[in-house]
Design a protein around this nucleic acid. Structure first.
Lengths: 250, 250
DNA sequence: TTGTGGATGTCGCCG
DNA sequence: CGGCGACGTCCACAA
């Protein structure tokens, strides 16, 4: 595999010796390939925090963009990792493969040291990256904009992402009587932070507008927790139940 | 590899035909092994939302706990996934491997359909899961408890995780003059939500205590954003700069 | 099961 | 580059 070759390529080594693994990682990294390493290893991370992992068998993924992931046989989350943007390196010290990812700008470093190697593989992957997702907050926003009556009769959206000193209001509009309305959207059941957000935006909007202008705040979400409902009541805010299109039952 | 065998085991197939891949996935899943599949595939997810991915070359990881991860050659995040708790299945339809993860209780389903297979491997992994992390919010809390003067002279912690109707207060205590103090901790630079949280806890604590008791609110974090600082001032709350032990420079 | 908030969150957008 | 909030967030812990 030559550098710049983005086509399909695979190189696999089972139970490789550590120097063969190092060489494979070197050439794969140079060719912008994705590398997987399976073996017994220890892990050390230092950066935004510090973490260590004792010996265990794990799957390590090195991506050409600098991402490093250390996965065990459980969980969605990697047990340790390095974010994109850094560089990978591999060497052998005391007959042991050491894989290191670092990003100087963030002062981060991830070190994986292998006792045992079960498998090392390199893959040249290409992906068009054309994801599509439905049921997001943007879908909920579009639903409200396409049918403002779903909020309440006479509601008129005037702006989305309206800037205030406290942040951007999801939907800003007017009710049937001409009062200002601040709408905060949540794609799923809303908790206390959502109320906090809405409250901040309402306060900021009151300051922005004429002092005597009424500003209503409406939280729009599929549902709210009890605590959130209480907080809404305390602050004179309102709630409208609405789900993003496509997530509703039926 | 027999069911219940948790020891080290590896089975690898390069450029397998789709039925061989299916068989390997079946036996690996039955043996609680971790499976990696590399190939060109499409992905469909339906559950909390809905997402689709067009054809692309990706790394798919199936874990024995029901986790499924679809990784491209970029990014920390899987481009699609299935959370732990479900089950994996594999079959061949129209000469194409289809891998499906589903969790009925959550109404979630992830379907990966392969056009091309570069590699299928299974690994029996064992991990002690003895992670250690430093520099967390818990470390910041311990730092304050071990040296209350780091907040201010005369500060006395009385409780951690003190319950209020608005949630749990990180540290509750008294200042040198006997006023109640509510402390909210953040391990990194704090933004508006942190102020909102602190404000809620202070309000709830004021209601809990005698009406005439003064309650101070202190945000403890390495730093705050401008907006957060303004919000603190508006609500009469305070800020003390402090980092979790071990993250500080020097 | 649900609620709540932390996380080495990551990621995208916008100033 | 930093601030800010969404995310199919995940996750641990408590009620």
């Amino acid at each position: 595999m030559t550098a710049g070759d983005e086509g399909v390529g695979v190189e696999t080594c089972q139970n490789p010796d550590h120097e063969a693994a190092r060489d494979l990682i070197h050439s794969a990294t140079a060719a912008d390939a994705l590398v997987t390493i399976v073996g017994r290893c220890t892990v050390d991370y230092a950066g935004r925090a510090a973490s260590t992992l004792g010996p265990g068998e794990r799957l390590v993924v090195l991506k050409p963009d600098g991402t490093a992931l250390v996965h065990t046989d459980e969980g969605y989350q990697p047990v340790s990792w390095h974010s994109p943007g850094g560089t990978h390196d591999a060497d052998v010290i005391d007959d042991r493969l050491r894989v290191e990812s670092h990003r100087e700008s963030a002062g981060e470093r991830l070190l994986v040291e292998f006792e045992t190697l079960l498998d090392v593989s390199a893959y040249g992957l290409t992906d068009d990256r054309n994801p599509s997702v439905d049921g997001t907050e943007a879908d909920l926003r579009d639903r409200v904009l396409n049918d403002p009556e779903s909020i309440e009769s006479g509601f008129t959206p005037l702006a989305t992402e309206r800037q205030t000193p406290a942040g951007a209001v999801d939907i800003f509009g007017e009710d049937a009587v001409g009062r200002a309305v601040v709408v905060e959207l949540k794609r799923r059941r809303a908790g206390p932070e959502a109320v906090g957000q809405l409250g901040r935006y309402v306060e900021a909007t009151r300051r922005d507008l004429h002092a005597n202008r009424t500003v209503r705040g409406i939280l729009v979400a599929p549902s709210v927790t009890d605590r959130a409902r209480r907080l809404l009541a305390e602050r004179g805010l309102e709630f409208v139940a609405l789900t993003p299109v496509g997530t509703e039952s039926g």
